[in-house]
Amino acid sequence: MIMQFNPNIMATFPPPVMEARRWIEGVEFPADRPLINVSQAAPVDPPPTALREAMAQFVLEDDETHLYGPVLGLPDLRAEVASQWNVAYGGDIVEAEVAITSGCNQAFAAIISTLCAAGDEVILPTPWYFNHKMWLDMGAITATPLETGDGLLPDVKAAAALITSKTRAIALVSPNNPGGVEYPSELLGAFFDLCQTRGIALIVDETYRDFDSRTDAPHDLFTRPDWEQTLIQLYSFSKAYRLTGHRVGAMVTSMARMAEAEKFLDTVAICPNQLGQRAALWGMQNLEEWLGEQRSEILARRAAIDAHFPKLAAKGWKIQGNGAYFAYVTHPFDERSDLLAQRMVHDIGVLCLPGTMFVPEGDPSGDKSLRIAFANIDAQGIAQLFERMETL
C-alpha cells in the first residue's frame, strides 16, 4: 500500500521547540550543572493559587463548564476584553468585534482562513514567529520575508515594495517573538496607513502586551477611523495568567470578518475551552495586581540581560533585541547557529533555539543568531546562563 501525504504538510518544517527537545534526549546533566532551558517562551509554573481555586469551583459548581459553548466564546469574556481594551487603547470596541479562540495560534489560523487562498501572499518580518510561517506553508500561502536588519524593526518602505496583487496582509508581532523588540507606536501607525491605503489587512499579534515596558498605550490603532476594516489584533491569555494548557486566545476584528472566522472555528474546535475561558475572565477581573507583579518580574529579567551582557559583548557577542520574554543575540563563532545550539547542550548545558529556525532557508542572518527565552529563569538564573555562555 502506498501512503499518501499532503505535500504542503510534508514541505513544512518540524515544530522547532519539539525539534530542539530531541537534542537533549539521552543527555545526562550533572547535579552541579543542571540544564538551563531557554528554548520555549511559556511559563512553566501553574496559575496562581487563587485562580486555581476559582477554577476548581467552576469544575464543581458550574455545569456549563463541561458543555459546548458559543463558537466565538463566552459573551462575558468577550465583553470584558472589549471593555478593558477600550480603557487601555482609548478605542471603541464592542463585544461583537471580539472572539475567543483556542490559543493565539488558532486565532492566527482562523484569520488567515478568512484572508487567503492557496497562492496568496502574507508579508512577515524576519526573524519571524515560526508558527505563523508553518501555518502559511500548510495552506500553500507564500510567506514573503521582510528583512529587518540589526535593530529588528521592519521598514515601511521596504514592506511597500514587497506588496503585489496577491498580498493579503502584513503580520507583525509586538513585543516581538523572537526578537523581543517593542514596535514604536509611530511605526505601527505607519504600517496601518500603508495597509489601509493598499487595501490589505494589518495583523498585529500582541501575545506579550502584558509585559510591554511602556506604561502608555503601545499604539493608537483602535482610535483610527474605520480601524476594523484594516486592523486585526491577536492576543493570548496563556502568558498573562499561566493558562498555556487550557488554550485561550482572542482576536479583535470586524463583525463581517468574525462571521467568516466563525465557520473555521466551528469546524476545528466547535468552541474554546470552557474552563480556560472562565479562568481568563476571572483573571481579568481579579488579578490586576498579581499581573502587575508578573510584569515587574519580567522587566527585571530584561534588565538582568542588559546588566550581564557586557561580559559576552567583550567576546564578540551582540544583542539585537531584548524585551517581553526574549533576547535575540548574534554569536562570534565561525559556526552555524543550529550547530552551535546543539553544541551548547553538551558543552555548557544550555538549550536555546538557533536563528535558522526564524528565517528562510539560506538567510545568512539566521546562521549568526540565537533566541534566548528567559521567561522561566530569574535574575540569578540569567547570571548563571551568561557565566556558562562566556566559557564557550
Score class of each variant (00 low, 15 high):
Phe29Met: 00
Leu243Met: 04
Asp334Gln: 11
Gly249Cys: 09
Pro14Ile: 00
Leu265Asp: 08
Asn177His: 14
Gly26Tyr: 03
Gly179Asn: 10
Gly249Tyr: 05
Trp227Ala: 02
Ala50Tyr: 08
Leu299Ser: 00
Cys104Ile: 12
Arg295Trp: 05
Arg21Asp: 13
Tyr183Val: 06
Ala79Ile: 03
Tyr129Phe: 14
Gly103Cys: 10
Met389Thr: 03
Arg52Ala: 08
Thr164Tyr: 02
Pro225Asp: 03
Gly323His: 10
Arg33Ala: 15
Lys368Gly: 11
Val268Asn: 00
Glu297Val: 10
Gly69Ala: 01
Phe108Lys: 06
Ala314Ser: 12
Phe58Met: 09
Arg295His: 03
Asp92Asn: 11
Glu95Ile: 09
Lys311Trp: 00
Ile305Lys: 02
Asp62Leu: 02
Ile170Tyr: 10
Ser165Phe: 12
Ile348Cys: 05
Leu353Cys: 01
Leu74Phe: 05
His308Ala: 08
Ser102Arg: 13
Met138Cys: 12
Asp216His: 11
Leu392Ile: 12
Leu370His: 05
Met284Phe: 02
Asp210Asn: 12
Asp210Tyr: 04
Ser39Ala: 15
Ile203Pro: 04
Glu288Lys: 15
Ile141Ser: 01
Ala217Cys: 01
Ala327Trp: 07
Gly349Cys: 08
Phe222Ala: 03
Gln196Cys: 13
Thr391Asn: 02
Ala56Asp: 11
Ala379Gln: 15
Glu61Asp: 12
Trp128Glu: 09
Thr330Arg: 15
Pro154Ala: 06
Glu288Val: 13
His346Phe: 07
Gln40Gly: 11
Gly139Val: 02
Gly199Asn: 11
Asp193Pro: 04
Asp220Phe: 04
Phe374Asn: 06
Cys195Ile: 06
Thr230Tyr: 09
Ile111Phe: 14
Thr330Tyr: 02
Ser365Trp: 12
Ala11Trp: 07
Thr391Ser: 15
Gln57Thr: 14
Glu61Leu: 05
Glu297Met: 09
Gly321Tyr: 06
Phe386His: 06
Arg52Cys: 10
Ile348Val: 15
Arg214Glu: 13
Thr356Ala: 02
Ala280Phe: 00
Ala20Ile: 00
Leu136His: 04
Arg198Tyr: 07
Thr126Leu: 03
Ala313Asn: 03
Ile372Met: 02
Leu351His: 06
Asp92His: 08
Asp193Cys: 07
Met10Trp: 07
Asp220Gly: 14
Ala190Lys: 05
Gly349Asp: 00
Glu288Arg: 15
Tyr241Gly: 06
Gln84Pro: 01
